[in-house]
Nucleic acid binder design. Structure first.
Lengths: 222, 222
DNA sequence: CTGGATCCGGGAAGATACTG
DNA sequence: CAGTATCTTCCCGGATCCAG
């Protein structure tokens, strides 16, 4: 990207991450962890392959990303965030909080990946039953989703892993999924709609609801 | 901006503010308050006039900015942030915190405006003498600068105003100014260098220093 | 003078085909 | 699978011009 030529922390930051697609690539690497090129492409529908290659090269020379050759299996290449790249999480979370009020139902041409919910869910979920034993609630599927792990009052949201044994799995159309976690769709309604398989109480445990996680959701609307 | 076409809070947010110059325009309006077209141009060196006009129009239709005709003096036009636009401050502050570690001394071609320090200073300053009477420290000049107002432990950073009576004025070359407030340049050294006019103790009162405001400054470097 | 609009060249982004 | 090559499109940047 062409530099703004301003001695200003914001402008200097945008010189590095202001390019198109760059922050979405960071989102993918934050959500998925070290990823292969093809995995990044799947999580970034709409990106041109040359653009992804170019961005990864630029981000590597900017110190946001490292490219690694894993010896096994068979010289696989993965891309991972450096600490400097991972430090963008705060900025991404603020942008997510700001963008969330515009999450009206998806339009027909919009793509969706359940693992995109990871960053929002970190702000939206909590443990409503700290005394209960540890549990995992999966959103989406094992191929593409998040595991919300609650344990004694603390929560962790990460990409779905085969080792986790979810007490409940929540899935459904994107608009309903978002509505559920922002408190616009009651859990009972989601259950009746067949969005929840497994223990509905586990879902009730983690859904923090809209006012706690995003108190400004309404007043920030235009 | 062309939409990413992703049903994701981050992507939707970037659809609105991901365009070049948009966040810097928000920076100006956050720092200066409602501003005239020419004032924005002065605070955005390097922007093409057509681009500023285009962005302001886009931001207006996105609900970030309102265009107002003041009746007096003589039908003056000003641009101001809506609450939705002002809600970007959190994201901007995170980006500033992230960009700050790259604030090496300015290169020759970089422009500088003292009022750009406003957002960083909100994170960097504090009242080290809550018991003392209210004071104002000016950074830069009246034409282009910030007033740091401390009063009983709380601080407020705003654009310089003629009504304020600063106890001290800090000014100098951009690199030194940044170094002073990030704790890399001792206050005594700044005073000896002639950067401070007025009460040096007032400056000492507000300079919070680097570790408090930006604890991650070093570890976040590449 | 302020607050833009118009025109144009260059370069970044987008789409697709192709390859080691 | 992990990109490169190529072509097109359109946004950005710079200069100039214009209306109130």
């Amino acid at each position: 990207m062409r530099s703004y030529g301003q001695y200003c922390a914001l402008a200097r930051g945008l010189d590095v991450v202001g390019d198109r697609w760059t922050l979405l690539i960071v989102r993918e690497l934050l959500s998925l962890g070290p990823s292969r090129y093809a995995d990044l492409q799947r999580g970034l529908p709409g990106i041109a392959t040359n653009l992804l290659a170019t961005r990864l090269r630029e981000m590597e020379s900017a110190g946001l990303v490292v490219r690694m050759q894993l010896p096994r299996p068979a010289n696989v290449v993965v891309f991972a965030l450096t600490p400097r790249g991972a430090a963008l999480e705060g900025a991404l979370r603020e942008l997510v909080k700001w963008g969330a009020p515009t999450m009206s139902p998806p339009s027909a041409h919009e793509e969706f990946r359940a693992h995109w919910l990871q960053l929002p869910l970190r702000g939206l979920c909590r443990d409503n039953a700290p005394g209960s034993p540890p549990q995992v609630v999966r959103v989406g599927s094992l191929d593409d989703g998040c595991d919300i792990a609650v344990d004694g009052g603390s929560i962790e949201v990460a990409a779905s892993t085969p080792t986790a044994e979810p007490a409940a799995v929540v899935d459904g159309d994107p608009g309903a999924l978002v509505a559920l976690f922002t408190g616009q769709l009651p859990i009972d309604a989601a259950a009746s709609a067949g969005m929840i398989s497994g223990d509905v109480e586990a879902v009730r445990r983690v859904v923090g609801g809209y006012p706690a996680g995003m108190p400004h959701l309404k007043e920030a609307l235009p």
